[in-house]
Design a protein around this nucleic acid. Structure first.
Lengths: 225, 225
DNA sequence: CCGGCGCGTCAAGATCGCGTCAAGAGCCGT
DNA sequence: ACGGCTCTTGACGCGATCTTGACGCGCCGG
């Protein structure tokens, strides 16, 4: 399914994890120290990294920092229970999750799946969305409506992204506001009405009778292909 | 996913909680004292509030009381004291959960998830309800009756939610009124008759002979599949 | 047979949410 | 500094939705 890099200097733990991960059909890479880990991340670009903070050569947080300089790969940090400061630091540096030892293998597997899923969701670019009337290329930021190139503003693109992540699904006003304008905009405002209007004018065949950008009164909007 | 407000005057605890919550992909807002907390609740309408009772300016219970004057947001109360009086008082004032310090971060995270679920995703838990004649998708707010998409109003959905929580079971008029129109509407009124009527017209094969939305005279209504 | 009670039905008025417009502020490149 | 493009914000009208009151009908007990 996915490639997981296990970074740990304890051969026993490494072995246990490898077996468990392979049993769940992950591809497993291993590294015993920080330098090797960095090399493997660079060479193989794994989908998930499991990183023990207690390493022989480099400090675990240092490894994490360097990984983050070049990669957004999800990192799950392992640490002994008492090193809570490390934990805090690791998460600040961009770890995606932490697990304190001792831990159950099942728990770790669940977190690997979760991390992979989160990354996949983020990484999954919207690519191209096509309807009978217009085409949206999110990667290129190009919109073609009825054969003509149309300019959309940055905010319009972001609204569309939030709506098109799951075509056909309802997106609540709150979700829309938060993913476009940030967490603080949880309440109603004119934004959505104005931008829904704007988008309909630019995209819909007949803005007065929306076919793709559907409003769900009191709830939010739905984008249908 | 959801926005959590952490109200605590201990910077260390605040930091730990923030990091843990962010690691589980919540948005985090913080407040060091009661006044700020009230302002943030009013301005940002978070999805969950974690409230420490020991605050510098206002008494924690007072903060809770004022939050409840304007908002139904789920509140999880933290307290160092083992005094059960506080616990009782807090729960009376409308706290949704109560955690005594010291506590495990995982435990708190679980309670945040639980609180968020109770409050936000009421519809989502119901999933899809299907009968021989119509299908209701509460998450997507879609109703298909005899193969056709039917539009239901927000209040109609809320009534259906209350009815469908336990298909086949009797739901009393009081329960219905309370869960749709709020705690103050314990008394009889026309609401239920009007909306039962409305729903039957939209959903029943023959509104004159209800097969799914059954009246229990003097008691309430029953939804049967 | 009669009267009360509870439910179904209807319709009118009040209210709410959305679409629309436009003015002004902020930002950027020139 | 200037001009153009965006974003923000307030105002307004309209249609959908909610609320409320009135009325009729059937059931049940007196």
């Amino acid at each position: 399914m996915s490639t997981v890099l296990v970074v740990d200097d304890d051969p026993r733990l490494q072995r246990t994890l490898s077996i468990a991960l392979r049993a769940h059909s992950h591809h497993v890479l291993t590294a015993n120290d920080g330098r090797t880990a960095l090399a493997v991340v660079a060479e193989e670009s794994p989908d998930v990294v499991i990183l023990d903070l207690g390493l022989p050569d480099l400090d675990g947080t240092e490894v994490l920092r360097r990984i983050r300089q070049t990669s957004l790969v999800p990192v799950i940090v392992l640490s002994a229970r008492h090193e809570s400061d490390d934990k805090v630091e690791a998460l600040d540096l961009g770890a995606d999750d932490y697990v304190t030892k001792p831990f159950g293998v099942e728990e770790l597997l669940a977190r690997v799946r979760a991390a992979g899923r989160r990354a996949g969701d983020i990484g999954r670019q919207l690519g191209v969305i096509e309807t009978s009337h217009f085409t949206l290329d999110f990667a290129e930021r190009r919109a073609v409506v009825a054969g003509r190139d149309i300019r959309l503003t940055p905010t319009e693109w972001r609204v569309l992204e939030a709506l098109c992540r799951e075509p056909g699904h309802l997106v609540t006003q709150q979700d829309l506001l938060r993913s476009v304008w940030g967490p603080s905009y949880g309440r109603e405002s004119n934004y959505l009405r104005v931008y829904a209007n704007q988008l309909r004018r630019k995209l819909e065949p007949d803005p007065a009778v929306p076919r793709h950008l559907i409003t769900e009164p009191g709830l939010g909007y739905r984008f249908v292909l």
